[in-house]
Design a protein around this nucleic acid. Structure first.
Length: 634
RNA sequence: GGGCCCGUAGCCUAGUAUGGAUAAGGCGUCGGCUUUCUAAGCCGAAGACCGUGGGUUCAAAUCCCUCCGGGCCCGCCA
């Protein structure tokens, strides 16, 4: 039994009894009451009914509740509410089912699981290390992927590499014209690339000659089959390798890298343009601002018509393709089976053992990877891209109705840094008074993910050593790194998607309170009890031996796992699971404080060990979905 | 000009979808709890006119409108 099943049953019961009483049929509202005294579940359905029938809700509640009989719950009418308090049968059934299902316990019953899901995340420009802003994208996307996979969907994770834009070309120019080395010395490739860009960008922008050359490079990258393109690809691949290392460090893995330059070379855009043209959505102005460009017509669309210039350029007058143009082609590929596909080759074997593939129009081979034609394609982008994503989606709906439900931009707020932190990393006093400062690679106002993780690991290491003076050095190393990962992942996941994260280094270095490390710590404490317990009688749980209410509360909380998994999928809200992990840890910590186990006499000891064991099974899986490494000691 | 997001204690946040029964955590401050399973924990105290004004309702942090403050987007950039 689980919370999810139970609320469904309660809903059905309420429906049945309202029907029997002849009331108007409304979908009964069922939710958790704000305070415990009102039970585990309560319904306000009587208030809704009374709006229609004009009868006193208190009287309705009496009538309805007297007709409800449930073997797992007491029913009570109070102040017009109908409250349900789960009994010990529920407690017993929950434990039994967890013991039967193990890690599968949190998988909700969802009707159609034969769907293919694409999740595209990270999407960093291949010219710099991954910073905290991109990491929010990576962590959100990875968690969604973990949850979809857990539930049973075929889930494919893509990483879009924007290698044909202006940023990569700056770096190539630095190497070919400005005397920068192809190989960095004593520096990671992604860091080297980021540094070059910061040093060189301004110079190029202010120099007409260089700027001209830059646009030649962009064209060459898009055309391919030349030395500059080869150099750019080589360079970008090295950077991407380093970026991937950072992703792997936080537990995120991919199935395919989609290179923007390959999208251009593949000719996919022509397919899309043909479709759009047939629908009469394209035109080429003979004069005016967009002279000789291929333009997407949006001015007749309701959501765009109030804009000054709603129409969108897809192909520039010089023949190059805009970002939105490329993205429409790519998005179309994701949700359909176009006549043109990419060429592929294996890129690298990841630490999880899985091959990461890459598109490569020059060195790859035609191959059926089955990584597109998704029923749902989720693209993680920060809110600044809301508008272009709307354009992409609208363009797709011109071609296929499927786009309406199958193409789903997933928006989240950016990560900025606090004034204090900006001062700290740049040394410039003027930032201190700012509430938020936007990250900028060019201004050196960036908190890189690797640096942050290293700092966190350092703090964790000191803490860990304090507690375990004799710990092996390599173990300490891995534990402190995993604590750092937990801290960052939880921090990113618990915050509402609409909120901007104002990142403050000092605040982020905290490992207590409402944090990822506290969740790990909770697990480690629980685990150490099981380990010390040795063999014990694993017979059934005995409800009569439950002495404290918190034992029941802990079990009830455990039983909510599948409910939150389902909600997370339904609303695409990773924070639901993060909050659940916290609530579950809270309950366990209370249990831990007031229910000694190893020192109790055998009956109670066994009973509590059974509860503990169920907690560990579920909590381990919850942490896994959040990508928080589980630690048996820390 | 058009569109989107945020405003809850000194600070950071949850709660807003589906209005209801005592606004929930964390940091910080103050005070407790280790002869007992890891104190990265737990308990307690102080701290909130839920940005403003109005409206809808038996009932508003939550819905509608006004205003104020902050952020973002609307390019032949990506």
């Amino acid at each position: 039994m689980s919370f999810l099943q139970v609320i469904e049953k309660i809903g059905e019961e309420l429906k049945r009894s309202t029907k029997e009483l002849g009331y108007e049929q409304i979908e009964p509202e069922v939710s958790e009451p704000t305070v415990k005294v009102h039970g585990d579940i309560s319904s306000r359905v009587c208030f809704d009914i009374s709006k229609i029938s004009k009868e006193n809700p208190v009287a309705i509640a009496e009538k309805i509740s007297s007709r409800i009989k449930l073997d797992f719950s007491e029913v009570e009418a109070k102040n017009g509410y109908i409250n349900f308090k789960f009994n010990d049968k529920y407690i017993f059934d929950v434990i039994e089912e967890i013991r039967k299902k193990g890690h599968q316990y949190g998988i909700p019953a969802i009707e159609n699981k034969n769907k293919k899901i694409i999740i595209e995340h990270t999407n960093s420009n291949p010219n710099k290390p991954i910073h905290m802003g991109i990491l929010r994208n990576t962590i959100l996307g990875d968690t969604l992927a973990r949850v979809f996979r857990y539930v049973g969907y075929e889930t494919i994770v893509l990483n879009y590499i924007d290698d044909s834009g202006a940023q990569v070309s700056d770096n190539i120019l630095a190497i070919t014209e400005l005397g920068y080395l192809k190989e960095p010395i004593g520096e990671r490739y992604d860091y080297y690339s980021g540094r070059i860009y910061a040093e060189v960008h301004e110079k190029i922008e202010n120099d007409l000659q260089l700027r001209k050359k830059k646009y030649e490079i962009i064209k060459k990258i898009e055309n391919g089959k030349n030395e500059v393109a080869q150099l750019a690809r080589q360079f970008s691949e090295r950077v991407v390798m380093d970026q991937l290392r950072t992703c792997w460090r936080v537990g995120a893995f991919f199935d395919l890298l989609n290179w923007e330059s390959d999208i251009v070379k593949s000719g996919l855009l022509n397919v899309v343009l043909k479709e759009l043209n047939e629908k009469g959505k394209l035109y080429v102005p003979k004069e005016g601002k967009n002279e000789k460009c291929t333009v997407l017509k949006l001015s007749d669309q309701e959501e765009f018509k109030n804009l000054e210039e709603p129409d969108e350029v897809l192909i520039r007058s010089d023949g190059t393709i805009t970002y939105v143009g490329k993205d429409i082609a790519y998005a179309f590929w994701k949700i359909s089976k176009p006549p043109i596909d990419f060429k592929y080759r294996p890129f690298v074997t990841q630490p999880n053992g899985k091959t990461l593939w890459t598109t490569d129009e020059e060195k790859g081979e035609p191959k059926t990877l089955n990584v597109n034609n998704a029923d749902l394609a989720i693209t993680l982008v920060d809110t600044r891209q809301e508008y272009p994503q709307k354009v992409v989606k609208t363009a797709l709906t011109f071609i296929t109705d499927k786009a309406k439900y199958a193409y789903r931009p997933f928006l989240y707020g950016i990560v900025a840094i606090s004034g204090e932190t900006a001062y700290k990393i740049s040394g410039k006093k003027e930032y201190v008074s700012n509430k938020i400062v936007h990250m900028s690679g060019r201004k050196g106002l960036v908190v890189n993910a690797e640096d942050m993780l290293n700092e966190l690991a350092k703090v964790a290491r000191m803490e860990s050593r304090k507690r375990n003076p004799n710990i092996r050095e390599d173990l300490l190393e891995s534990i402190s790194n995993e604590i750092a990962v937990a801290a960052v992942r939880y921090f990113m996941l618990k915050t509402d998607l609409n909120n901007i994260i104002v990142f403050d280094i000092d605040e982020a270095l905290r490992l207590n309170g409402d944090s990822g490390p506290r969740l790990q710590y909770t697990y480690a404490r629980a685990y150490s009890i099981i380990e010390k317990a040795g063999k014990y009688d694993r017979g059934s749980i005995n409800q009569k031996l439950i002495k404290k209410e918190i034992e029941r509360e802990l079990i009830k909380e455990i039983s909510k796992f599948s409910f939150y998994v389902k909600e997370t999928i339904k609303d695409l809200e990773p924070k639901y699971l993060a909050r659940y992990a916290k609530n579950l840890a809270d309950k366990f910590n209370l249990f831990y404080e007031s229910c000694p186990i190893l020192t109790e006499k055998e009956e109670i000891r066994n009973n509590r060990l059974i509860i503990l064991e169920s907690f560990l099974v579920v909590f381990e899986k919850v942490l896994d979905l959040l990508g928080i490494p589980v630690l048996q000691e820390m």
